[in-house]
C-alpha cells in the first residue's frame, strides 16, 4: 500500500506527460486570450506571452522531455553497467576505462551540449541524446565500478572464473544480478541528471524550437512576464521538479531491499 503511494506521483506525472497532448483543451499554438492574461474562464492557468493557453501548453510540453530523459538515463545506465562491471573484472581494461572517464568528467555539461549540438547540424534530438549520454556516462561508470569491485573479488565470481566462465557470462550472470538495487538507484539519479541536461539545452534553445510546447522552453519564454502571469513560469518549473523527483522516488521503491544477503542481518 505504501509502495503504491510512493509510486503514485511518478505514474501520475508520466500519464500527464504522455497523454497530455490529447487532453489539451485548446490548440497549443493559437492565441485564446490577451498576452499574460491571468487565470480566468477557459484559461485556468492564464495565458502566455502570445496569449496561448498555458494549461494546454503544460499538458503538451512534457512528453518530449520525459522520453528524451528516459532514453538518456537508460542508455547511460546500461552502458555504465556493462562497461563498469567489465572494468571491475578486468583490471587492465578497468584502468583504461576509468582514466577516460576521469578526463570526460572534466568537460562541463553545458559546454558538451553546445559543442555536440552546434557542430552536428540537423542532428536534432539524436545529437542532444548523444551529448547527454557523453556527459552522464563517466559518473555512472565510476559508480558501477566501485559497486562491482567487491563482487568481482567475491568467492562466487572466483568460482565461476575457475569453472571456465568467460567475461560476458561473468558480467551478465554473476555480477549484474547482484547490482540490481544499485543500478535502479543509478537509473533514477541519471534520470534527474538527464532532465537537467535536456532542460538546459531547451533553455538555450538547442532542443525544441518555438512554437513547440516544452516546459523548459516555456520557463524561458514567459520569464519576462512573470509578474503579470506567474503561473506561466511556476507551473512548468514545478512540473520539471516533480518529474525528476518522482522518478527517483519510484526507483528507490522498486530497488530490492539491500540485496539478498547470504547471512541474515544482525
Amino acid at each position: 500500500m505504501r509502495t503504491a503511494l510512493r509510486l503514485l506521483p511518478a505514474g501520475l506525472i508520466a500519464v500527464i506527460a504522455l497523454a497530455g497532448p490529447l487532453l489539451a483543451p485548446s490548440p497549443i499554438d493559437a492565441p485564446v486570450a490577451a498576452p499574460y492574461a491571468l487565470p480566468g474562464p477557459g484559461v485556468p492557468l492564464g495565458a502566455d506571452e502570445l496569449g496561448r493557453n498555458v494549461l494546454s501548453r503544460v499538458l503538451a510540453g512534457g512528453r518530449e522531455l520525459l522520453l528524451t530523459s528516459l532514453v538518456v538515463a537508460c542508455l547511460v545506465t546500461v552502458a555504465a553497467a556493462l562497461l563498469g562491471t567489465a572494468a571491475a573484472l578486468r583490471p587492465a581494461l578497468g584502468r583504461i576505462v576509468e582514466r577516460v572517464a576521469d578526463v570526460m568528467i572534466l568537460l562541463p555539461a553545458v559546454l558538451a551540449v553546445l559543442l555536440v549540438v552546434l557542430s552536428w547540424q540537423g542532428g536534432g534530438r539524436v545529437a542532444l541524446v548523444t551529448a547527454a549520454v557523453a556527459v552522464g556516462l563517466p559518473y555512472a561508470i565510476r559508480v558501477v565500478c566501485a559497486a562491482a569491485a567487491p563482487i568481482a573479488g567475491s568467492g562466487y565470481v572466483e568460482a565461476a572464473v575457475a569453472g571456465g566462465e568467460r567475461l560476458p557470462q561473468l558480467v551478465w550472470r554473476e555480477v549484474l544480478p547482484n547490482l540490481r538495487a544499485t543500478l535502479l538507484i543509478l537509473l533514477g539519479l541519471r534520470f534527474v541528471a538527464a532532465v537537467y541536461v535536456v532542460t538546459t539545452a531547451a533553455f538555450l534553445e538547442l532542443g525544441p524550437q518555438p512554437p513547440a510546447a516544452d516546459w523548459a522552453l516555456m520557463v524561458r519564454e514567459n520569464a519576462p512576464g512573470i509578474l503579470l502571469n506567474p503561473w506561466a513560469v511556476v507551473v512548468p518549473s514545478l512540473a520539471i521538479g516533480v518529474l525528476a523527483l518522482s522518478v527517483q522516488t519510484a526507483a528507490e521503491v522498486l530497488a530490492p531491499r539491500s540485496g539478498r544477503q547470504v547471512v541474515a542481518r544482525l
Partner: peptide, 22 residues
C-alpha cells in the same frame, strides 16, 4: 576452458562461494 574444467576446487568458505541471487 577445458583445463579449467579438469581441475575443480571446492573452496573453504561456503558462504562466499555461492552467488546469493542464483
Amino acid at each position: 576452458g577445458e583445463q579449467r574444467r579438469l581441475i575443480q576446487l571446492v573452496p573453504q568458505d561456503p558462504l562466499g562461494a555461492l552467488n546469493p541471487v542464483r
